[in-house]
């Protein structure tokens, strides 16, 4: 008993410390987006949504939000196609050197420091004569988030019995029918979770985007630009909104994950014609 306490009490203290230092600044930003502060103390009487109102008057921010959503959706869609094809290819050729190589190529942009990825892409696009904008940001994000979707899709494929494909072929299905009726329905949940996670990553991605954005800024890039001009309480409101959206996405991923892990029944009755 006492020995447990000797370990438990300091452990709890460390945990509290970690959580406080992690979340206190976030809480502060959250509070400061509604209240003003005077001499290091929050003035509780000063509640107002004025910073949010200012935020919505700012057209540049609205455009940045739209850019973020657009880039996120395009990048997730492109990455989903690319990652799914790659995962199916790797799964069907296990142990092949070419499959291993493909896997490395997919993982590399995720593992490399974003500054390297961003810089390399910047140089590449400049040499190729491609102007910076939504397209270049989307390409950068696609490379970056493919690894996430790939990993989740591959995990699901590995969990599926290889015999399923053989069974479908054995029953007379063509390759196309096997993909449509057998593989794809089983990838709906991993594609949903992977897509949400990838979208969240794309939504928050700053470093690669900085190099590739040109005049079309995404939300984090706009935020960064605002910070450089000077700190205004509007930034608190913006950070709170971004935070709220990210938390929402994370919760959605967690929920989808839980459904995914549940029994493979009931969730997918589509796939019939």
């Amino acid at each position: 008993m006492t020995r447990n306490r000797i370990i438990d009490v300091p452990l709890a203290a460390v945990a509290v410390l970690v959580y406080v230092s992690l979340y206190l600044p976030i809480l502060l930003v959250f509070l400061l987006s509604f209240f003003s502060m005077r001499r290091g103390k929050v003035n509780w009487d000063s509640f107002s949504l004025s910073w949010y109102a200012k935020l919505f008057e700012n057209d540049a921010l609205g455009e940045a939000l739209w850019n973020s959503l657009l880039v996120g959706s395009l990048a997730v869609a492109a990455a989903a196609c690319f990652a799914t094809s790659a995962a199916i290819l790797v799964r069907s050729q296990p142990g092949r050197h070419s499959a291993r190589l493909l896997e490395y190529v997919i993982f590399l942009p995720f593992l490399l420091p974003p500054i390297i990825t961003g810089l390399s892409l910047l140089i590449y696009f400049r040499e190729a004569g491609v102007g910076r904008g939504i397209f270049t940001i989307t390409v950068g994000h696609t490379l970056f988030v493919s690894a996430i979707i790939y990993r989740i899709v591959l995990t699901r494929l590995n969990a599926l019995s290889r015999n399923l494909v053989e069974a479908a072929l054995d029953l007379g299905a063509t390759r196309m029918q096997t993909f449509r009726f057998i593989i794809l329905p089983n990838l709906r949940m991993p594609l949903l979770t992977g897509g949400l996670l990838a979208f969240a990553l794309s939504f928050d991605e700053t470093m690669i985007t900085l190099f590739l954005s040109g005049t079309d800024a995404t939300l984090p890039v706009r935020l960064y630009a605002m910070m450089r001009v000077g700190f205004t309480p509007t930034i608190n409101a913006l950070v709170t909104l971004i935070l709220g959206f990210s938390i929402l996405l994370t919760v959605a991923v967690a929920l989808a994950w839980r459904r995914n892990a549940g029994p493979a029944g009931k969730t997918s009755r589509e796939g019939r014609t």
């Binding site: 029953l171 969730t267 997918s268």
Partner: peptide
Amino acid sequence: NRRPFNTVFQDYALFPHMTVRENVAFGLRV
């Protein structure tokens, strides 16, 4: 898929996202 006979697998290889009826119907459906 063009061999005129069918296989029962050791792990059954039933399609997990289909009901029993849909599993059995698969060969006819394709």
